[in-house]
C-alpha cells in the first residue's frame, strides 16, 4: 500500500490518482501508523519551506520518517516535500529542515522567478527513476532549490539560471523538485519507475 501523507498542503487529489495509475492501493492519510508501515510513503508539499516544515512537525511526521529510515522503507518527497529533506531552508528566514541530506535550500538566481513550467532533467549516472524518460520534460513550480549534490546518491540536474537538484535517489529516500503527478505521461512513468524500483521489489 502507498500512503500519501496529508499534513495540510494543497492538491492531493491529482497525486492520489496519479499514483493509482501504477499501484492498486493508494490512500491519502495523516494516520501515523499507516504512514510508518506503508510500503511506500509520498511526502507532498506546497508553500513556503518554513510553513511547510511547521505543518510537517505538527503532524508528527518527523517521527514517521525516523521510523521509516530505521525500517528501511521507501519514501518519496515532492517539491517542498523534497526541500524539507535537507538540513536547512532559507525561504523568508532560515528554517531547520529534517537533515536527511546535508546542505541548504536557497533561492535560485534567475531573472524571472518563480521557475514555472516544463523543463528538462539530466539524469544522474545509474538513475532508475528516469529509465525510459531520459529526454522528457517535467513540470516545475518553485523559486528555491538545493544545489549541492548529495554524496553517494544519484543526483539529477536541471538548469534554470543555475544548476540545481531536480531529483535525488538513495536506497530509501527519493525526491523530486518537480511534480511528477503534474507532468503528464512522463510523470506517470516516473511514478511507475519509483513504485517498481523502490516500493514493490
Amino acid at each position: 500500500m502507498i500512503a500519501i501523507l496529508d499534513y495540510g498542503s494543497g492538491n492531493l487529489r491529482s497525486a492520489q490518482r496519479a499514483f493509482e495509475s501504477a499501484h492498486s492501493e493508494v490512500i491519502v492519510t495523516s494516520d501515523p501508523d499507516i504512514c510508518i508501515n506503508a510500503d511506500g510513503l509520498v511526502v507532498p508539499g506546497v508553500g513556503a519551506f518554513g510553513a511547510c516544515m511547521e505543518q510537517f512537525v505538527a503532524a508528527g511526521a518527523v517521527e514517521i520518517l525516523d521510523q521509516r529510515a530505521a525500517t528501511e522503507l521507501p519514501t518519496l518527497g515532492i517539491c517542498v516535500g523534497m526541500q524539507i529533506f535537507f538540513a536547512q531552508g532559507v525561504e523568508k528566514n532560515a528554517h531547520k529542515g529534517l537533515g536527511i541530506w546535508p546542505g541548504e535550500v536557497t533561492q535560485i538566481e534567475a531573472p524571472i522567478l518563480p521557475h514555472i513550467g516544463w523543463n528538462t532533467v539530466t539524469p544522474g549516472a545509474g538513475s532508475q527513476l528516469f529509465t525510459g524518460i531520459e529526454n522528457e520534460r517535467f513540470y516545475f513550480v518553485h523559486s528555491f532549490a538545493a544545489t549541492q549534490k548529495i554524496e553517494g546518491a544519484v543526483n539529477s540536474i536541471t538548469q534554470y539560471g543555475v544548476e540545481f537538484l531536480a531529483a535525488v535517489e538513495t536506497p530509501y529516500f527519493v525526491a523530486t523538485q518537480f511534480h511528477p503527478e503534474k507532468s503528464g505521461d512522463a510523470g506517470l512513468k516516473l511514478i511507475s519507475n519509483w513504485i517498481n524500483g523502490w516500493v514493490t521489489l
Partner: peptide
C-alpha cells in the same frame, strides 16, 4: 475541478 484533476495530469 475534482473530475478534471482526477484524469488530467497537468497543472490546473
Amino acid at each position: 475541478v475534482r473530475r478534471t484533476a482526477e484524469q488530467v495530469f497537468i497543472p490546473l
